[in-house]
Amino acid sequence: MARTVWDSSVGKKTVMAVSGLIMLLYLVVHMIGNLKIFFGPGEFNHYAHWLRTVGEPFMHYEWTLWLIRVVLVVAVVAHATSAYQLSRRDLRARPDKYVHRKARTSYATRTMRWGGTILALFIVWHLLDLTTGTVHSGGFQPGHPYQNVVDTFSTWYGDVIYIVAMLALGLHIRHGFWSAAQTLGVGDRARDRALKTVANILALLLTAGFLAVPVAVMTGVVS
């Protein structure tokens, strides 16, 4: 069955839809967690520490966190691989362009591929910046995420990279969430408007929620 799914263009879209929804669920949790930065370094750092102790004593220190990381890596790899393979197929299926071209699809639809690439690059930068601290500006302090976040958003490039990526994320979710519903066969005429509304609300809330942090640092609300 796995073979049938992976070999079919419809099946590969299913892989994209499911992996995309897993990442979307994670992003909602991540965004809510980020907002704790508005309650001061104590609460934010405590929350970050708690992420490592979730599930204790059943789970050992950081086990839950690593479990989530593994699921996310699988989701990202599955999403990106199927996107790459499906895009290759799509481009091969339309080798000759029309002389008279018209752009009628929405901006969100047209930017799915480039937006996805931007997001993939952003994830790499984001991990190197705030998880490993490799490209972090100033001294990266493990266990002090509040200060690390403030440091990142005190640089102009930190803000620019983050803002561009979050706008790309909003557009990606706007088309992606609704598309996932169609791919999984749960959309119909009656639900179409509701699905589009939910997609737009999710896109807006996530973009606004994530952008609140750099904006707060830039305006000095969080320092």
Partner: peptide, 21 residues
């Protein structure tokens, strides 16, 4: 309509589950 494609995806997923691939 475009939802025709959604309907086909639904049928495809159902058939794949039933036929076990």
């Amino acid at each position: 309509p475009l939802v025709s494609i959604t309907g086909m995806n639904k049928e495809w997923l159902r058939a794949t589950r039933k036929a076990g691939g």
